[in-house]
């Protein structure tokens, strides 16, 4: 028998409130190109990206701490497959513990030739020092910055 299909697309736009903590973080990034974390007073750990509370201690975070621009790679991946709605491959991204931070923040890695998988993976291996770069035009978003392997 004839079997039919129907194509349906979901199209809802969401306007999410970022709240005071993330707003302050993104304004500093947008206007001054600087990254900050927020300290959980109970554990002393600096959370980057900053959260209003620690999900470990459930205490509100207190003071702001400038972090980076240097850091170390905590993990990475290099994507060679195309996915709908995601960037064209190849691209590399992962997580970096910025200097003075205790947690890692996600971002793209640039300045690495991704054509040879093994060589690229070696250049991004865990522990590699990186430098944070910020875009000239910034909108207050995670994509305003990225990481490049540093030689220091």
């Amino acid at each position: 028998m004839e079997l039919l299909k129907r194509q349906e697309t979901w199209n809802i736009t969401y306007t999410h409130a970022l709240g005071e903590t993330a707003s302050w973080f993104y304004v500093q990034l947008r206007d001054h190109g600087k990254l900050y974390g927020k300290r959980d007073a109970k554990s002393g750990r600096v959370l980057v990206p900053p959260r209003a509370f620690s999900d470990q201690t459930l205490e509100p975070t207190t003071d702001w701490v400038e972090v980076g621009p240097g850091g170390r790679i905590e993990t990475f991946t290099i994507v060679y497959e195309e996915f709908n709605g995601l960037p064209p491959p190849p691209y590399a991204f992962g997580y970096v513990k910025l200097d003075h931070a205790d947690t890692a923040i996600g971002g793209f890695f640039r300045g690495v030739d991704l054509s040879n998988q093994e060589v690229a993976a070696e250049q991004l291996k865990i522990g590699t020092r990186v430098m944070t770069k910020v875009a000239e035009k910034r909108i207050g978003d995670v994509l305003d910055f990225w990481f490049e392997p540093s030689t220091d």
């Binding site: 999410h16 409130a17 970022l18 709240g19 005071e20 903590t21 993330a22 707003s23 209003a52």
Partner: peptide, 8 residues
């Protein structure tokens, strides 16, 4: 208002 994100 916008003072709190959903998680907050």
């Amino acid at each position: 208002g916008l003072k709190q994100s959903l998680e907050e």
